[in-house]
Computed example of a mutant assay.
Amino acid sequence: MSAPLVEVQDLAKVFDVSPPWLNRIVERKPRAFVHAVDGVSFSIQRGRTLALVGESGCGKSTVARLLVGLHGATHGAVRIDGEDIARTLAGPGALKLRRRMQMIFQDPYASLNPRWKVLDIVAEPLREHGLVASAADAKARVGKLLDAVGLNPADADKFPHQFSGGQRQRISIARALATQPEFLVCDEPTSALDVSVQAQVLNIMKDLQREQGLTYLFISHNLAVVRHMADEIGVMYLGRLVEVADKTELFAKPRHPYTRMLLDAIPDIHMSGRARTPVQGEVPNPLQPPNGCSFHPRCPLADERCRRERPPLLEIRGVRVACHAVEEGRAG
């Protein structure tokens, strides 16, 4: 197997959420920190899709922003084709690296400038990277990009408010594809859309991946969408990866109790009668995470070791999983 296009090693991001200095002095409160991402490691092969799933607040979107350099990592490394992005983005090669990776944001209503026409929105990266020589060249390139995402080239002369949510997200995809990137980070790109429109946008993304050999990091909480899009799935809980597996393997035989809980939350429309683990408890306060395994307060398999010792992400029978019960054979 060839070297992966994207490598993430021990990635972490800590946010200082302390109240102002004077409040801390008067109220005698210590500084507060949130470990939004806590030691995440994964890789993505060229032309493949890794999906990150988990409940809201688990750190998925922070990982996405770290990968494209919108946040600086507290520690750890992100490499594109073996190139450390933190070092590259701080040097003269930043613009070249930006061409190779782009991001599709979650909200198509907030990610497009309402004062700009679609022509200017999609052509902006072309102009910034010096990929067009004239206004006529820019218009022709934008027309081709709009056509690639299922829009009419004549739509270039319209404003964002003249489009539906699904059409706006197609404009966002066209903008992301303008620099012909190799790697796209998709942060819940269809969560704000109706189900029928979601299917159209996802099919366009699949077609573009097949035609252009794109590599995706796909962030979502919708397991049906993930099943359609992903080749490999990483399950996150409270800033950490708890299971990473091939899509078919994960849906057929989930190992981690949290993965099982997520899959059991999907309605069983086939009424198969399979045993289902009810959802228990709430996500802990990230300011005061539990000791040991962060999932142990909600886990039916937790024992004293789980309360005391944080499990590492180990490869067990072809699946990477962080669970003492799976490691000890107690998970069934």
Rank of each mutant, 00 (worst) to 15 (best):
V142W: 11
V142M: 13
D207A: 00
S172Q: 02
P92E: 15
V6F: 02
V195R: 03
D120N: 13
G93T: 13
E243Q: 11
A86N: 10
V279K: 11
P114W: 12
V34P: 01
I269L: 14
F218E: 10
S134H: 02
K117S: 13
H71F: 15
L146E: 10
C186S: 09
V244Q: 06
L202N: 11
L241C: 10
I219E: 14
Y216P: 08
V40F: 03
A224H: 02
L126W: 09
R330C: 11
D137P: 00
L262R: 03
K29L: 08
T62C: 04
I121S: 12
G213F: 15
F105Y: 12
S41C: 05
L263S: 05
R210F: 00
R46Q: 15
C299R: 04
I316H: 07
H75Q: 12
L262Q: 05
L97F: 02
V6R: 03
Y258V: 06
P289A: 06
R307K: 05
S164C: 08
R141S: 07
T248C: 02
P92K: 13
Q288P: 00
L70G: 08
R46W: 13
P254G: 09
L314E: 12
S41D: 03
R46K: 15
Q209S: 00
M261I: 02
P108K: 09
E211R: 13
N291T: 09
S191P: 03
R260F: 06
D10S: 11
R168V: 08
P92G: 14
G93Q: 15
R79K: 14
S272E: 15
Q45L: 10
A94F: 12
G93E: 15
G39N: 07
Y237V: 06
Q9Y: 08
L119V: 10
P267F: 03
G72W: 13
S220R: 04
C58E: 05
